[in-house]
Design a protein around this nucleic acid. Structure first.
Length: 563
RNA sequence: GCGCUUGUAGCUCAGUCGGAUAGAGCGUUGGAUUCCGGUUCCAAAGGCCGGGGGUUCGAAUCCUCCCAAGCGCGCCA
């Protein structure tokens, strides 16, 4: 439709003396229904070009359009309004054909082709296997997975990847934590000590690292290890055996948690690969050749000042161990080398200042870093009884993602992470999440879908059917036409959410669908109406159910038949 | 101190590429209902869009300064 109007207006403008070469038309959906279905601000934009009042320009364009004239099967009315807007109203016929399109597309409705032929890699979660996924990881996981879904619906071929590092200091500490617990289980007479800050002291085995992991899961891993391998594991030297055991066990748990949320990764990328292939060291050499790296105090520094930072940063420590920046640059270079047109990273707010170094580093190596898009999300606060729930990873008082799902369910968990813009702080109200009423937005959407399905079942019981053709032109009620207008926006809504990497835009839209449907439901009946009208309305209800279901499936949320 | 993010109704938040009278849910108040699912619907009240300045036909939106909150600022990741 927009393309059609675009062409019409451009040719009308041609007859009025042409437009600047780089001029493009802008359309928008007016907030106020009195302003039609599509508005164009062309006249205001061209005020200077024509040196005329916008209203006058708009009127001239309208006259030229009416002389052509516009296809009455698409546009029923053109209006000049306000400071010079041109408002177009869709004809009923156009709306009905749009409805027919929705029904025909069925579960495919909402797909579009903007990403056709392109490949995208979405990297998310990427938590090192040091413990169970927490609520914070949950927001990351759900955002990443949903962004991947959105991209798929716009035609991209998408891969989901999890990046991890099992060789760093964190993992060493993890292994030592397990070993200490193991040793204490083998010989309970071993001494203990207290670690932590004042008021938050924990009693741990003597050999427990100062910054060790305090979670109960560590003890459980030690117990299992003792049971399976016996008490004679070597506790001397590095804690490799314990680290491996912990890693395997924790990864298994992480994958189970992800699966429970409906998330399936395509690949797990181990940071070690970048060392095995010597990649990271090659990059250091390249940076040196580019005069972007130098040696100082025994370390290798990256000239981040060249990227606009205040200070240079260390790339390789004097110990010879790289900082995370180096493998991260290598990893992103690797992603781009794999030929992806779009590389999406999902990061928590704590990365906000550091990812630009990585992007600029990759760019300096000659890659097209514009293909990298970083989604930063702010932290999550759980609210219970109107108060924030205290969480600390160190003290192991965090709430795990599994616990959250146990409490409120998988659908609610996903929806709550998706209902707000990623870059605002999220308040996750547990009491609201558990409530099965209209106060709970997920419930409202699912309920709307269940009710549609119920109405259709009931209508079939009384002898109606939505099979075969129906005379859609019987749909003339304002609530019916309005519902169709909302329904046909699904593809655009998905595209927009995908383009901005903001799934909440789709959540917001689906809520509008549910509202438009309940308005229709309140004003138009099916059972008890004349059969042809009932059939037409069943078609409309079917389409509304389809749109809700498709939209929910993009969000990874179920659309129940009954509740 | 520096960087990034945020500041919109009592609360939680939407607000498209800069568009017309700034929206929704909750809460509050008042209504409706011979109900295809009352787990519903309708309506009202409620706003200096953090504050000042600027850009322009037009600003919640862009620029600038100030104020406030969050996150970060390590040879941690």
């Amino acid at each position: 439709m927009q393309d059609y109007l675009n062409d019409c207006i451009l040719s009308a403008l041609e007859s009025l003396g042409g437009v600047p070469a780089d001029f493009t038309l802008e359309f928008q959906q007016p907030a106020n229904p009195d302003h039609g279905d599509l508005a164009c601000n062309v006249a205001m934009k061209l005020e200077k070009h024509f040196r005329k009042a916008p209203r006058q320009i708009a009127e001239e364009i309208r006259d030229a359009l009416e002389a052509q004239p516009l296809d009455p099967d698409r546009i029923s009315e053109v209006q000049v309004a306000g400071p010079g807007f041109m408002n177009f109203r869709f004809s009923d016929k156009y709306l009905l054909s749009a409805l027919a399109d929705i029904l025909e597309a069925g579960e495919k409705f909402g797909h579009s082709g903007t990403g056709e032929g392109k490949r995208a890699l979405v990297e998310f979660v990427s938590a090192n296997p040091t413990g169970p996924l927490t609520v914070g990881h949950g927001r990351n996981a759900v955002l990443g997975d949903t962004i991947a879904n959105l991209l798929q619906w716009t035609g991209y071929e998408v891969e989901r990847e999890y990046y991890f590092n099992d060789a760093g200091r964190q993992m060493r500490v993890l292994g030592e934590s397990v070993r200490a617990r193991y040793m204490a289980q083998v010989d309970p007479t071993l001494g203990t000590k207290e670690i932590g800050e004042d008021g938050e002291l924990s009693t741990v085995p003597e050999s427990f690292p100062e910054d060790g992991y305090l979670g109960e899961y560590i003890d459980e891993i030690a117990t299992r290890l003792l049971k399976e391998k016996g008490p004679d594991l070597s506790t001397e030297g590095d804690a490799d055996v314990f680290k491996k055991a912990a890693e395997g066990s924790i990864f298994k748990e992480i994958e189970a948690t992800l699966e429970r949320m409906g998330i399936q990764m395509n690949s797990f990328f181990n940071e070690r690969t970048l060392y095995d292939s010597n990649r990271v060291w090659d990059i250091v050499e390249q940076f040196k050749e580019l005069d972007l790296a130098y040696e100082k105090d025994g370390a290798t520094w990256l000239k981040t000042t060249a990227f606009g930072k205040e200070q240079d940063t260390v790339l390789v420590k004097s110990s010879g161990e790289p900082t995370y920046r180096l493998p991260d640059i290598g990893y992103h270079a690797d992603k781009l080398e794999r030929g992806f047109d779009l590389v999406v990273d999902v990061f928590g707010a704590d990365h906000i200042a550091t990812f630009p170094d990585v992007v600029e580093g990759v760019r300096a190596l000659g890659f097209d870093a514009d293909r990298i898009e970083v989604v930063i999300y702010q932290f999550v606060t759980l609210i219970r009884g109107g108060r924030p729930v205290k969480m600390s990873t160190r003290k192991a008082t965090f709430v795990t993602l599994d616990e959250l799902m146990d409490e409120v369910g998988e659908d609610v968990t996903r929806y709550f992470f998706l209902m707000r813009s990623p870059n605002t702080h999220l308040e996750f109200d547990l009491d609201l999440a558990k409530e099965a009423s209209d106060k709970n937005p997920v419930f409202y959407l699912q309920y709307a879908h269940a009710r549609i399905r119920s109405i259709l079942r009931k209508a079939i019981e009384v002898g109606f059917s939505h099979e075969g053709d129906a005379d859609l032109s019987l749909l003339q009620h304002e609530a019916e036409l309005n519902l169709i207008k909302e329904l046909m926006r699904l593809p655009e809504s998905i595209e927009r959410a995908a383009a901005h990497k903001e799934p909440h835009r789709l959540s917001t839209y689906l809520r509008e669908i549910a509202v438009a449907f309940t308005q229709f439901y309140g004003k138009c009946r099916i059972i008890g109406e004349e059969e042809n009208l009932a059939r037409a309305r069943m078609k409309l209800a079917l389409a509304a159910g389809q749109v809700l279901k498709n939209g929910l499936s993009v969000l990874g949320i179920s659309a129940p038949e009954k509740m």
